[in-house]
Design a protein around this nucleic acid. Sequence first.
DNA 1: CGAGTGCCCTGACAGC
DNA 2: TGCTGTCAGGGCACTC
Length: 303
Amino acid sequence: MWDAPCTKERSPIPELPEVETVRRELEPWLTGRRILSAALVDAQPGPKYANLKHAEGQQIVRVDRRGKFLLLPLASPDPQRDGTERDVLVIHLGMTGVVTHVQPAAHERVRLTLDGRDKTTLHFQDVRRFGRFLLLEEGNPAALPTLAAMGPEPLADDFTTEALWRGVRGREAAIKTLLLSQRPVAGVGNIYADEALWRVGIHPRRPARQLTKKQVAHLHGAIRDVLQASIEAQGTTLYDYRTVNGEVGAYLEKLDAYGHEGEPCRRCGTTIERIVVGQRSSHVCPTCQRPPRARRKQRPTRR
DNA sequence: CGAGTGCCCTGACAGC
DNA sequence: TGCTGTCAGGGCACTC
């Protein structure tokens, strides 16, 4: 079981599997509902909550997901716009975002009222305000640059080894930094990046251009495996998380690298280290994941 | 354009 | 006890 370093872990950081779980919960609730009102609660207007008023009167057509973004396309009641222009309600959970029909005790940022008979209020709670809840007007995807430049969905058919290879080939940046950019593939966050890299024995700091095509093929498989397994597990683990106060084992036990600093590597027994890559904490086995040669120190500038 | 850095924000926790 | 400092991290603005 876990020693002290892990007991302070909080609820899971929303990555793709968690967001997909939320999407599946929202879909039957929200599909077809009309938004009667949209309002900020404990929040200041700003780009994170842009154009919310435009959602009023519109109908939620679907509940989609793109990477870690929830996308709710809206149908306008205006017949001139219907079918041609579509606004999209965009929700990003950030670190602490929660969408619920239960009134939160604090930190509610956005509230929607919906038509229908039950669960007619949607609350967006976000303690740390890293999340977003905004309306994206069609034709303005540049308002969310990460979404606009996002790579293929990791579990979709177009995420092939070849696609990942194209996304990382020749790049100088550390492979983990590149994965977190969402550009080679969508939805990979800090936890699953560490997990996938551990599985294939690639050091997170290794410049992407140093990877062989075979390594990229393995990485491609590992990303899919890790995310697929997590999605399958989330149905129960995330639910347990919400109901069993303080219970952390079910979630973290599935991970091999993330959160295991100071523990033996499950493959070779070497102590897992925590390092920083691209200003994000990273967990590596120094034996399985051979570090790249230290960068040559720059010569001191002469004077 | 790619790569790197700092910032946002708040609660949990360590240390004194 | 209560204060101060540190940490966590997705996405974005900014610089070079």
